[in-house]
């Protein structure tokens, strides 16, 4: 973004026939120094994910924080309810902190509940979903990405991106076609 105000195009999209070709192209692009790219495939390909995945999605940290908060609040809720606010003698169990074993199941469940909700919701939100429009849809044949075609997109925001040179580079990787992606 630093050397152009608004990129005229979203990026350059290369289509490959096989997953092996896409893996090789991803390796080559990474090797050439490109960092802002994305791949579109009908099924997950571990090696491609390794190359293009953002290092830190932030989701694991959020899940940990939510899990700890959930567990602590679950314990506090029971402690306040059963020990402080409305102590009831249930089967002669102690009415102080030594009653902690009976509070562990709920503590555990609350930790899991908040962690799981946070994982699902933060995944959706941080992925920018829901997203009714994406420039990738402008690429011809892009619907094949969910059937039998393998796409690699180098985005215009990449520091190394150059409309003609990047296009040249992608053509050396043996794609079926290279398309400019309209913004």
């Amino acid at each position: 973004m630093q050397n152009r105000a608004t990129p005229e195009i979203y990026g350059l999209m290369a289509e490959f026939r096989t997953p092996e070709a896409l893996v090789a192209a991803t390796h080559a692009a990474k090797h050439a120094g490109y960092s802002r790219m994305d791949a579109f495939t009908p099924f997950p390909i571990e090696e491609v994910i390794e190359e293009i995945a953002p290092g830190d999605t932030g989701v694991p940290r959020l899940v940990l924080i939510a899990g700890v908060i959930g567990a602590l609040s679950g314990f506090a809720l029971q402690y306040w309810g059963n020990i402080i606010d409305y102590p009831l003698n249930i089967g002669g169990r102690p009415l102080d902190i030594t009653n902690w074993p009976s509070m562990i199941p709920i503590t555990f469940e609350m930790g899991i509940l908040l962690a799981a909700f946070t994982a699902a919701i933060s995944m959706v939100v941080l992925n920018g979903l829901p997203q009714p429009y994406h420039p990738a849809f402008n690429v011809p044949r892009f619907e094949r990405a969910s059937q039998d075609a393998f796409f690699l997109c180098i985005e215009a925001t990449d520091p190394l991106f150059d409309r003609s040179q990047t296009s040249q580079f992608l053509r050396t990787l043996g794609p079926l076609q290279v398309t400019e992606v309209a913004n």
């Binding site: 089967g91 074993p101 009976s102 562990i104």
Partner: peptide
């Protein structure tokens, strides 16, 4: 391990 303990502890 804890499941076994908490059931026996609760039953007493």
């Amino acid at each position: 391990s804890f499941g076994q303990y908490v059931i026996i502890w609760s039953g007493d």
